[in-house]
Design a protein around this nucleic acid. Structure first.
Lengths: 352, 352
DNA sequence: AGCATGGCGGAAAGCGCTCCCTGCTGCCCT
DNA sequence: AGGGCAGCAGGGAGCGCTTTCCGCCATGCT
């Protein structure tokens, strides 16, 4: 026994070692460790002691080899390369975006109870995408949670084609058999419109997200529809790129074209923040002269002054649910493709 | 051949399959894939074609089993549990912190050329820490980059003890044999002090980080020393917790105790931002009435109005270097323990 | 011409684990 | 009282890969 202990120090203990110490076979030890089926209680105890004595930890590579399970899932950030910026800057922008942090938090939270951890992959170039596909095919992960910023991203369909369990944050542009979570974006936009109208705003405008992004389209459509119901048939909209800088630029133009503007709805909080800065520079008081509503309820909403009234998107819960969807698919790849749509809510603070 | 191709479709191709198609042995194929040693060029070509034809991808579990390399490294965020907040909130705060995003970006950037990806682990509870240690011992990752917010975090020494390649972001409180990167925090604080003094500030104060954090201590010491050289023997300091809210609270107190204050140095940008809000509420103009300097040069610095003058910490480069340090250690565990100290720089914008 | 030399490919031994299959024991049912 | 039939433990195959060892052949030397 002391011999067994000694070898355990030099070389990591194996099942064989534990079996020898416990005086049973490998199979029995394996049974105790995994689905404890058909093992005498007394023997179980002996084995457990032997495990403790040897300091045994199962080797995950060996286990993966036979079970064909990696025991990890990939979190892929895809299609993030801007056209002008370089790779590093683009990666940086995405990873620093509060949205990403919240999504990550949700994924981690959902994975934790299963003892799993996400493998973080950034697929911002064609080469990186190949690498991701390769890694998953190698069995480097059992499935992937995809957060794609580019609606034309080829990765989702590629992964679905190779039979990988994949789920998507946000509805895909083209219908493909894939589970996803999304937000009822139109409803969110309606919430904002109703609030602005109730405040008595008579000349509102929107700073939209990139035209190609479905969520951005839905927010615009929803906003315009709701405003139309309130008697405002046309709402001007300038397209932004979901960054603060983009919001500033859009606001400048909006203000130039509509000096009498008294309400702004931005496609996300970052752009709303940019808009508020510009409004401030132009001497407009918020919310007295111009009311501003954002979208997301990210940390930026609380970190701005005045504090931003915004449409809350429960990103953490959405990411957690998405992860659960993936896990279900990993368990049962033939299972149904499902999607869950979350309802937004309006968080009223000071800006509107 | 068509038969070989057909089976390759149903079941992932193995080395054996490739060997059969190429008409060589497993060993040869393996040699071609890895360190191409002693293989005839013509045969290499044949093998490569066979690989392409079968769509072969090496199974990483099998490879790991024999090479004893996981082919991934862990990025561990440790000791993040606040005392009052719940687990989810704490995790959220850390993952949403711009500092984390930048660090992550650096790690990913350094890993990319090697075709590696980080496994993200959050070790905020004792249980989670055990899980991390377990996972690493199982061979789930070849090493770990540790970003620890709590200076008393037991994880670094625990991992060093079990012989895991580990590196640390920021100098450990107690000296342990571990490679790390850090910033010359005192120099950074001096930069801020010199700038404030040069502006003609006569009554400056500081909003420090948590007293237990070495970096926070260094920034305070460095600032006080430099201010003393400028003829200001005492600089009041209120401790914050590196959050915007903490900065607001500290600023309120500072203002109450030193109404004539005309310069503030905050231990990080988030707190500086909070301070600016409070200053604004109290009718102080920035930088005319009160000059404000932050620390980090995070995205928050650019996202605030006026734009924050701050001490830049090259987090991305530091994280990248740290990752390289880890990789070196994984390659050669007996190698020397090294640490790299980065120099900060002052980024002058509008707030000071 | 014969022998050492070295480049090159194949055979086979595992890496540590899971899981199927077999065989043992003790019990119940007929 | 004998034949099954659970319940439980062990033997062993094999997951897909790397790597050592060995033997083959062609070359260069004496």
């Amino acid at each position: 026994m002391s011999d067994a202990l000694r070898t355990a120090v030099s070389r990591p203990a194996t099942l064989e070692d534990v079996a020898r110490v416990a005086g049973v076979s490998r199979s029995t030890v394996s049974r105790v460790i995994n689905g404890i089926r058909n093992v005498d209680l007394e023997i179980q105890e002996t084995v457990r002691q032997a495990i403790a004595a040897t300091g045994y930890v199962p080797n995950s590579a060996a286990r993966s080899l036979v079970t064909r399970r990696a025991g990890s899932i990939a979190l892929v950030l895809s299609g993030v390369a801007g056209e002008v910026e370089d790779e590093d800057t683009a990666r940086n922008r995405v990873l620093t975006d509060p949205f990403f942090g919240r999504a990550l938090s949700g994924v981690v939270g959902a994975l934790r109870p299963r003892g799993l951890h996400p493998l973080l992959m950034v697929a911002d170039t064609a080469e990186a995408r190949d690498q991701v596909v390769g890694h998953l095919k190698q069995g480097g992960a059992d499935g992937a949670v995809l957060v794609s910023t580019d609606p034309e991203d080829p990765l989702p369909s590629r992964l679905v084609e190779v039979g990988m369990p994949v789920v998507l944050f946000a509805r895909p542009v083209r219908p493909i058999p894939i589970s996803y979570v999304d937000l009822a974006n139109r409803d969110g936009a309606r919430l904002a419109a109703d609030h602005l109208a109730a405040r008595g705003c008579r000349q509102v405008a929107m700073i939209g997200g990139p035209a190609g992004v479905p969520a951005a389209q839905d927010r615009l459509t929803g906003f315009r529809e709701a405003m139309a119901r309130h008697g405002f048939p046309y709402v001007p909209c300038i397209e932004g790129d979901f960054t603060q800088r983009g919001g500033e630029l859009a606001m400048e133009r909006l203000l130039a074209e509509n000096p009498g503007l008294d309400g702004v709805f931005a496609g996300n909080d970052l752009m709303a923040q940019g808009a508020m800065f510009v409004l401030h520079e132009h001497g407009r008081r918020i919310p007295d002269d111009v009311a501003v509503i954002g979208f997301d309820d990210s940390s930026a909403a609380l970190a701005s002054r005045p504090r931003l009234t915004t449409v809350r998107q429960p990103v953490e819960e959405m990411a957690a649910e998405l992860t659960r969807l993936l896990l279900a698919r990993v368990e049962n790849p033939a299972g149904p493709v499902t999607s869950v749509i979350f309802e937004p809510s309006l968080v009223v603070r000071q800006s509107a």
